[in-house]
């Protein structure tokens, strides 16, 4: 359960990222956040796992207070929140397995992490995560040798290896071609259903948002301007969220 009460985020340069946001996201929900770039989608996701500090308001993740957490508490909270990025953010010069285990670094003693002496259980978790995204045959390949879609799946596996209760994805398909984007979104949806992991995904393609969002949240200028089901989010709603008429760039697939 994620609860935001009147959360405001102001960046050091004065830009307001979130402006009095109130949201409650129950366990296991699949939420898609839409909005133009700069609308606060990315800030929302980064605030939830503490990469961006809260200026005022209260933010609880599974009952833990993110806004007032100490450094150590923050790391513990983050270890329960998986995160997926637009640019995958893999370490390209090392194996897929090492990349997946990086999700578990919070729970591995430093001296073993230094030596890369992973335990059987840690590797087992890595294998299982890779099996879940269907890329286990690449376990010992270098990350740099994978295609974009494969890299994003490794990134999902890295998040899964954390045993997260919440999964955050910041524009996970923006760097992928349409068929691969569909596949990655399906992976995320399946994981959400199978493991009951609360999932928040930032998207700017409205067709993907409608297709996958059990719930769609529209953001504009740091505020929540729409909160409803994917079915309710018709073109008129999106035009209101985007503040302009829709164009072909707003959909992933060619309009039928």
């Amino acid at each position: 359960m994620i609860e935001l009460k009147d959360v405001t985020v102001r960046y050091p340069n004065g830009v307001v990222g979130l402006d009095g946001v109130n949201l409650t996201i129950p366990d296991g929900e699949f939420v898609v956040v839409v909005g133009l770039s700069g609308a606060g989608k990315s800030t929302l996701i980064r605030t939830i796992n503490g990469l961006v500090p809260v200026t005022s308001g209260s933010l609880l993740v599974d009952g833990m207070d993110v806004a007032s957490a100490s450094k150590k508490e923050m790391r513990a909270i983050r270890s329960k929140i998986g995160m997926i990025f637009q640019s995958f953010n893999l370490v390209k010069r090392t194996s897929v397995m090492n990349n997946v285990i990086m999700g578990q670094l919070h729970d591995i003693p430093s001296w073993r992490a230094m030596l890369g002496a992973w335990s059987k259980e840690e590797k087992e978790k890595g294998y299982q995560a890779l099996e879940r995204v269907g890329i286990v045959e690449k376990t010992w390949t270098r990350a740099s040798e994978l295609s974009g879609g494969q890299q994003q799946r490794v990134a999902i596996a890295r998040a899964l290896a954390q045993d997260p209760s919440v999964m955050l994805a910041d524009e996970p398909v923006a760097s992928l071609d349409p068929p691969t984007a569909q596949m990655v979104m399906k992976d995320l949806q399946r994981i959400n259903r199978e493991l009951n992991i609360t999932t928040l995904v930032n998207l700017h393609f409205l067709d993907l948002a409608r297709q996958f969002g059990d719930r769609v949240i529209g953001m504009r200028a740091g505020q929540v301007v729409f909160d409803g089901t994917g079915a309710e989010a018709d073109d008129a709603v999106f035009e209101k969220i985007y503040g302009r008429s829709l164009t072909a760039d707003d959909t992933l697939a060619e309009p039928a």
Binding site: N49, L51, M74, R75, A76, I77, R78, S79, I81, G82, M83, F85, N89, L90, M102, G103, Q104, L105, H106, S110, A113, A155, R158, A159, Q162, L168
Partner: peptide
Amino acid sequence: AVDAAGSG
């Protein structure tokens, strides 16, 4: 990415 996973 590793920061988001709470690494030391």
